[in-house]
């Protein structure tokens, strides 16, 4: 066995023995060695790791000065050369949990070391920090200290040694909400047949992916009076001027654009092409109105069906686009429409 793994531990004023709520404004400090629950943690580590320092702070003071305190404390432990940082366990204490999460995130970012904390699953810190650091679920109160510390120590050692982790359920931490690729002993075909047989026989089965659910939005109010409304047209079908001058990506696009249709009665064939990497573009290239129906809208505009067609169309490529990017682009487009006084938009989808 090489040298012991060096651990820094974060706790609050209560577990440091300074005091309860009346001492929640206690200033941050660093102490050498294990303090309070750190001793239980040290016992769980045995000879494999050593708590070289403990950092602590009052819960109120930390949360009111979170960025500064976290930066200061992490700067103070740089010389301790920790291989791992453990915070808490904070059980169901909200402010303590948030402090634990924050200190872990900053330690991970600044020192590049693995970080883990322990909180009750219902502690708000669980949801906030599980995407960024390892969060071990614990009981609700300090009465569950022993049950909390053992799995934290076990996971901490694995992390510090850089071992490949199994699933959150196997390793005892809360899922981050992210997914990674792994290799397993059986082919997908074999797993598929076996999973199906379990379902058909009424035996318990475990899907490899749970169906996601999307946000729901309350329907927007109707356009009040079409006769006085500016209406826009747009597409996720990637219609762009020929040559794609703005280099909208054919898949996983990050860009969107508006293209002027001022004074145009139609989108002329040859003037536009599809930048989209997900459908056969021949039909829309032959007549771009099949994707962005400017010609039909102009006729309806002249006939008085609505006041005015906005003088540019909106375009992006909706192919393999992550929801986060789509949300961002949608928000940016909507802001533009509001600024421009557009009351409604017709968006074509492929």
């Amino acid at each position: 066995m090489s040298e012991k793994i060096r651990v820094v531990h974060y706790i609050n004023q209560f577990f440091a023995g300074i005091g309860g709520e009346d001492k929640a404004d206690a200033r941050p400090e660093r102490r050498a060695g294990a303090v309070g629950p750190g001793r239980a943690l040290q016992a769980a580590f045995g000879q494999d790791a050593e708590i070289v320092a403990t950092i602590l702070c009052g819960d109120t003071y930390f949360n009111e000065n979170a960025d500064r305190v976290a930066d200061d404390l992490i700067a103070q432990i740089a010389d301790d050369k920790p291989d791992l940082i453990i915070a808490g366990p904070a059980f169901d204490s909200g402010r303590y949990g948030m402090a634990c999460g924050k200190i872990c995130v900053v330690a991970h970012e600044k020192l590049g070391i693995p970080a883990l904390t322990g909180v009750a699953p219902e502690n708000p810190a669980a949801e906030v920090y599980a995407p960024y650091i390892y969060v071990v679920p614990t009981g609700g109160t300090a009465a569950k200290m022993r049950e909390a510390v053992a799995p934290m120590a076990r996971l901490g050692l694995k992390l510090a040694r850089g071992e490949t982790l199994g699933t959150p359920a196997q390793e005892g931490y809360l899922p981050s909400g992210k997914r990674r690729n792994v290799f397993v002993p059986e082919t997908a075909a074999k797993r598929g047949v076996q999973m199906l047989l379990r379902k058909v026989r009424g035996e318990p089965y475990e899907t490899e992916l749970r169906v996601p659910t999307y946000d729901r939005v309350t329907p927007a109010n109707p356009v009040n009076d079409l006769k006085h409304a500016t209406i826009a047209v747009g597409t996720e079908g990637g219609t762009v001027p020929t040559g794609n001058p703005d280099h909208i990506e054919s898949v996983r696009a990050t860009r969107w654009q508006t293209y002027s249709i001022l004074g145009m009665d139609t989108l002329a064939a040859g003037g536009y092409e599809s930048a989209h990497g997900g459908y056969d573009a021949r039909f829309a290239n032959a007549d771009p109105n099949r994707m962005v129906p400017v010609d039909a809208l102009r006729v309806l505009e002249k006939g008085g069906a609505f006041a005015e067609l906005y003088d540019a169309f909106f375009s992006t490529v909706g192919c393999g686009m992550p929801i986060a990017t789509g949300t961002e682009i949608g928000r940016a487009m909507a802001n533009r429409m509001k600024q421009e006084g557009i009351e409604g938009i017709i968006i074509t989808a492929t």
Partner: peptide, 27 residues
């Protein structure tokens, strides 16, 4: 699956609630 490079985005383009047994071939 998709899910973006970090694996935190939506993994499927389309899904129905009846899809209770899904085998993943990776992102």
């Amino acid at each position: 699956e998709l899910g973006g490079p970090e694996g935190k985005d939506f993994p499927l383009v389309d899904s129905v609630p009846e899809a209770e047994t899904i085998v993943s071939t990776g992102s």
